[in-house]
Computed example of a mutant assay.
Amino acid sequence: MYKGQSGMWSWLLHRITGLGILLFLFIHIVDVSMLGFGPEVYNQSVTLFDYWIVRLLSLALVGAVLYHAFNGIRIMAIDFWRKGSRYQRVMFWIVLAATIIVFIPMAYVIMVPAFHWLTQAPHTTAGR
Rank of each mutant, 00 (worst) to 15 (best):
Y2H: 10
Y2V: 13
K3H: 10
G4E: 02
Q5P: 01
Q5G: 15
Q5R: 12
G7Q: 07
M8S: 11
S10T: 06
L12C: 07
H14R: 13
R15Q: 14
I16D: 02
T17I: 06
T17D: 04
T17C: 15
G18P: 08
G18C: 07
L19A: 10
L22H: 02
L23I: 10
F24S: 01
L25T: 14
H28S: 14
I29V: 15
V30Y: 13
S33F: 09
G38A: 04
E40D: 09
V41C: 00
Q44P: 01
S45C: 02
S45H: 08
V46P: 00
T47V: 12
T47K: 11
L48Q: 09
Y51P: 01
Y51G: 12
Y51M: 09
W52R: 07
W52C: 05
I53D: 11
V54M: 12
R55D: 06
R55Q: 11
L56W: 06
L56K: 00
L57M: 08
S58N: 15
A60I: 10
L61I: 10
A64Y: 07
A64V: 03
A64P: 05
V65T: 14
H68S: 12
F70V: 08
F70P: 04
N71R: 08
N71M: 08
G72L: 12
I73K: 02
I75G: 03
I75N: 05
M76D: 11
I78K: 05
I78L: 07
D79N: 14
R82H: 09
S85G: 12
V90Q: 10
W93I: 04
V95H: 00
A97T: 10
A97S: 08
A98R: 06
A98H: 02
T99K: 00
T99C: 04
I100W: 09
I101E: 05
V102K: 00
I104F: 03
M106K: 02
M106S: 05
M106T: 03
A107G: 07
Y108K: 06
V109D: 00
M111Q: 03
V112H: 04
V112P: 00
V112F: 02
T119M: 04
A121W: 11
P122Y: 03
T125S: 09
A126Y: 11
G127Q: 03
G127T: 05
G127A: 04
R128W: 15
R128C: 09
R128L: 15
R128Y: 15
R128H: 15
